[in-house]
């Protein structure tokens, strides 16, 4: 190396120049790809919602979405109504699925009445599904889900996802065997009070035959992820209880 490149001034100038060039390059890439990426995220939401209500391409053991080509079409076909509940008032909103639950949760910290709760109402084979998006914290990062319920808050389908749970342990919440356990589980107890669904390590019902115990079997080695999922179901789905009470009166 020559002496020129060893001087401090040169080093600092080089670093500044490099940061500007690389920064500009990355900003350009990010800005030009953003519309495509946003579109992908929207399609994924539609796929998730459809998955929860049983519109998917599952085979015996794996979880498969409908393809992105047909997702918007199927979404329009099966989701008959999208509503937003805010402070007890229900309004229809065709873009409710675009509501960012993370932002709504942040808003609710100051004033719970500010939070908008989206709910998607789907019809399939004569059955009505109420699909709610929920979000919480796992062990490392965010976990979220779409829960499809009937009018009595009995779960009809669930799709779980996560940002960075441990592969092979917490990450298994998005495996079929875990998600399918929720089908048929009651969110209310026998007296009609909201109880949620606990991810239980000691429920003595590993095959999940008892659907009214408000419990499903936990994943071994994923205690904190499981607790996060339980807490998310309790805190977020309980907000929908007034809507369902109204529905049945």
């Amino acid at each position: 190396m020559s002496n020129k490149t060893d001087s401090n001034v040169y080093t600092v100038l080089f670093a500044i120049g490099m940061v500007i060039v690389v920064g500009a390059l990355l900003a350009f890439t990010a800005a030009s790809l953003k519309p495509t990426i946003t579109k992908n995220v929207e399609l994924e939401k539609q796929q998730n919602i459809l998955y929860a209500m049983g519109v998917n391409e599952n085979d015996e053991s794996s979880a498969n979405f409908v393809s992105t080509d047909v997702a918007p079409e199927l979404f329009n076909k099966y989701i008959t109504k999208q509503i937003v509940i805010q402070d007890g008032k229900v309004t229809e909103n065709d873009e409710a699925y675009l509501i960012d639950i993370k932002k709504e949760k942040a808003k609710a910290k100051g004033d719970a009445s500010k939070r908008r709760l989206p709910l998607f109402i789907g019809e399939k084979d004569g059955q009505t599904f109420y699909i709610a998006p929920i979000r919480g914290k796992g062990l490392w990062d965010a976990v979220w889900a779409y829960i499809a319920m009937d009018e009595n808050m009995v779960i009809q389908g669930a799709y779980f996802d996560h940002k960075g749970e441990t592969p092979g342990l917490g990450a298994n919440i998005k495996e079929r065997y875990f998600m399918d356990d929720f089908i048929g589980e009651h969110l209310l107890d026998s007296e009609g009070n909201f109880k949620g669904v606990d991810i239980s390590k000691s429920n003595a019902d590993p095959l999940n035959k008892d659907k009214t115990d408000n419990e499903v079997d936990a994943i071994a080695g994923a205690t904190i992820t499981g607790d996060g999922v339980s807490a998310m179901i309790k805190s977020d789905l309980s907000l929908y209880v007034p809507y369902f009470k109204n529905l049945n009166n």
Binding site: M1, T5, D6, Y10, T11, F14, M18, V19
Partner: peptide
């Protein structure tokens, strides 16, 4: 033209930028 004092950082920046792309 890479200053030898920060060459590892420069290498990291190049990899990181490419990986983000």
């Amino acid at each position: 033209i890479i200053p030898s004092k920060i060459r590892i950082i420069v290498q990291l920046t190049v990899v990181a930028a490419l990986v983000i792309i």
